[in-house]
Amino acid sequence: MPRNVVDQEQINATAAKLNNAVNSTLVPELKRLQDEVDALLGDGLVLSQTSPKLRDSYANFNTSVTQAVNNITEFAKQFQQIGDSVMNLDSQIAGGIPS
C-alpha cells in the first residue's frame, strides 16, 4: 500500500531554496549575461547589420529564459499549497472524529 508523507518543514525549505535561486541567483545572472552580450555587441563584436539582429535575438531569448526561470516560483507555491491543503484536510478529518 502506498505511503503518504507530508513534511511541512521540508516543503517550506525546498520552496525557500527555489525562490532564493530564482531571485538571488538565476534571474540576476541572466540579467548580467544580457548586459555582457549588450557590451560585446556594442564594443567587441560590432557588425553594422549583424550586431543589432544578434542583440535583438539574444534579448528575446533572454526574456523567454527569464520567464521560464520565474515559473520555478510557481512550483514552490504549488508545493506549499499542497502541503497546506493536506494538513488542513487532516485537521478537518481529526476534528470530525468523536472523542
Rank of each mutant, 00 (worst) to 15 (best):
V5C: 02
D7F: 02
I11R: 02
N12V: 00
A13Q: 04
T14A: 13
A16R: 12
L18G: 01
V22H: 00
N23T: 15
S24M: 10
V27A: 02
K31E: 12
K31T: 15
K31I: 14
K31H: 08
R32A: 15
R32D: 13
A39Q: 10
L40C: 12
D43Y: 08
D43Q: 13
G44F: 07
V46Q: 13
Q49M: 13
Q49F: 09
R55T: 09
R55W: 02
R55C: 01
S57L: 13
F61D: 04
F61Q: 06
N62M: 06
N62K: 05
N62C: 05
S64T: 10
Q67N: 15
A68D: 10
A68N: 08
A68E: 06
V69F: 01
N70E: 15
E74N: 15
Q78S: 14
F79T: 05
Q80K: 03
Q81M: 13
Q81D: 14
Q81L: 12
I82M: 11
S85P: 00
V86Y: 04
M87H: 07
M87E: 10
N88W: 01
D90C: 07
D90K: 15
D90G: 03
S91E: 12
S91Y: 05
Q92L: 15
I97G: 02
P98T: 09
S99W: 07
S99R: 09
S99A: 15
